[in-house]
C-alpha cells in the first residue's frame, strides 16, 4: 500500500481526475481563470523541457507561445475554428519559428543563451504591440468566435466545455513531453546537458539534438498559445509580455526545473498569487511578484520537487 502511495504516477492520475472533476465544484468565472492557467501551464512545461532536460534556461519561450496564439487568432478570423487545425497549425507555426532562429540560438550556452532568449522574448512582446494588423495593438484582438472541438460538434461556449478541452489538450501534450523525455531523444539531450564534450567525442551530433529539443519545446508553447485564444476568446499583447516569460520561469523554478508536473503546479501557484494580488492589493502586482522571485530564489533551491524529494515523497529521478 505504501508503495502505491509513493508512486508518482498514482498521484498524477489522482490529480488529473481531481482537475477533471472541478467544473462540478467551482463557478464559471473560476473555471475561466483556470483555463487561462492551463494555457500558461503548457508554456511552463515548454520552459521545463528546455531548462530541465536540455539544461538550457530560456527566458524567451513566450515567443513561440505568441506565434501559436496569433496563428490561432488569424485562423479563427478567417473562419477556421476546428480545434485539430488550430492546434496543429499553432504548434507548427511555433515550431517553424524555433527552427528558423534555433540554429543561431542553440549554438550558445549558459549566459549567452539566457541573454539571447531574453532578447527574443522582449522583442516578441514589442512586436506584438507594434504589429497592429494582427494583434490589434493595445486594444487587443477583438472578440473571436469560439473553437469547435471537431467537425460536426457544437462550438465550445460553456466554461466547463472550454475547461475540459484545455485540460485534455494539456494532459496529452504533457504526457507526450514526459514520454519523449524518458525515451531515447530525452536521453540524448540529457547526455548533452551532462557533458557535451563527451557526447561530441562519441560521435553525437549535439547541435542537431539541441535544435530538435528547442523546436519541440517551441511546439508545446505554441499549442499553449492556441489554448489561450480558445479560453479567453480575446487576446492582448500583454498576454505575451516579458513579465509572462519571467512569471513562467518563476513557476518552473518553484516547481523544480526538471519536473513537468511541478512546472504546471508552479504555474498555477504563481498565477493565482498574481490574481489574488490584483484583487486585494491593486497596482502592487509587480512588487509582489518581484518579492516572490527573490523569496523563491533564496528559499527553494530545488523548487517544490526538491522539497518533495527531501520529504521522500518523490523518487530522485536524476541530477538536475
Amino acid at each position: 500500500m505504501t508503495r502505491l502511495l509513493l508512486d508518482t504516477r498514482v498521484w498524477t492520475a489522482l490529480a488529473v481526475a481531481a482537475l477533471a472533476a472541478l467544473p462540478f465544484a467551482v463557478d464559471a468565472y473560476t473555471l475561466s481563470s483556470l483555463s487561462g492557467i492551463i494555457s500558461l501551464g503548457l508554456l511552463a512545461v515548454s520552459v521545463a523541457v528546455l531548462t530541465g532536460t536540455a539544461g538550457l534556461p530560456s527566458l524567451g519561450q513566450v515567443a513561440p507561445y505568441a506565434f501559436g496564439m496569433y496563428t490561432t487568432v488569424v485562423l479563427i478570423r478567417a473562419g477556421v475554428t476546428e480545434a485539430p487545425v488550430l492546434l496543429l497549425a499553432s504548434g507548427a507555426a511555433a515550431a517553424v519559428f524555433c527552427a528558423v532562429i534555433g540554429p543561431a540560438v542553440v549554438r550558445t550556452r549558459g549566459v549567452v543563451f539566457l541573454m539571447l532568449t531574453l532578447a527574443v522574448g522582449e522583442l516578441t512582446a514589442q512586436a506584438a504591440q507594434q504589429w497592429k494588423a494582427v494583434s490589434g495593438g493595445t486594444d487587443g484582438s477583438g472578440r473571436l468566435d469560439p473553437t469547435v472541438p471537431f467537425w460536426g460538434l457544437e462550438p465550445l461556449v460553456d466554461e466547463p466545455a472550454v475547461y475540459w478541452y484545455c485540460l485534455a489538450v494539456a494532459v496529452v501534450v504533457t504526457a507526450l513531453a514526459g514520454w519523449a523525455a524518458r525515451s531515447t531523444p530525452g536521453s540524448l539531450v540529457r547526455g548533452v546537458r551532462d557533458n557535451e564534450a563527451r557526447m561530441r567525442a562519441d560521435g553525437h551530433r549535439v547541435g542537431a539534438y539541441l535544435l530538435g529539443v528547442f523546436v519541440f519545446a517551441g511546439m508545446i508553447a505554441g499549442i499553449g498559445g492556441s489554448l489561450l485564444v480558445t479560453s479567453q476568446r480575446m487576446v492582448f499583447p500583454s498576454d505575451v509580455s516579458f513579465s509572462i516569460s519571467a512569471l513562467v520561469l518563476m513557476a518552473v523554478v518553484i516547481g523544480g526545473a526538471a519536473s513537468l508536473g511541478g512546472a504546471l503546479v508552479g504555474a498555477g501557484a504563481v498565477i493565482l498569487l498574481r490574481d489574488w494580488t490584483a484583487a486585494y492589493l491593486p497596482g502592487q502586482g509587480p512588487l509582489v511578484l518581484g518579492a516572490l522571485f527573490i523569496a523563491a530564489v533564496y528559499l527553494m533551491p530545488g523548487g517544490l520537487a526538491g522539497v518533495l524529494e527531501r520529504i521522500g515523497l518523490r523518487r530522485r529521478k536524476e541530477a538536475t
Binding site: P57, G110, L118, P286, F293
Partner: peptide, 16 residues
C-alpha cells in the same frame, strides 16, 4: 546564472 538572473530581475521589479 539563472538564479542570478531571477534574483536581480525580482529586485528590478520591486525597486522599479
Amino acid at each position: 546564472h539563472m538564479m542570478q538572473a531571477l534574483l536581480t530581475f525580482g529586485v528590478s521589479m520591486v525597486v522599479g
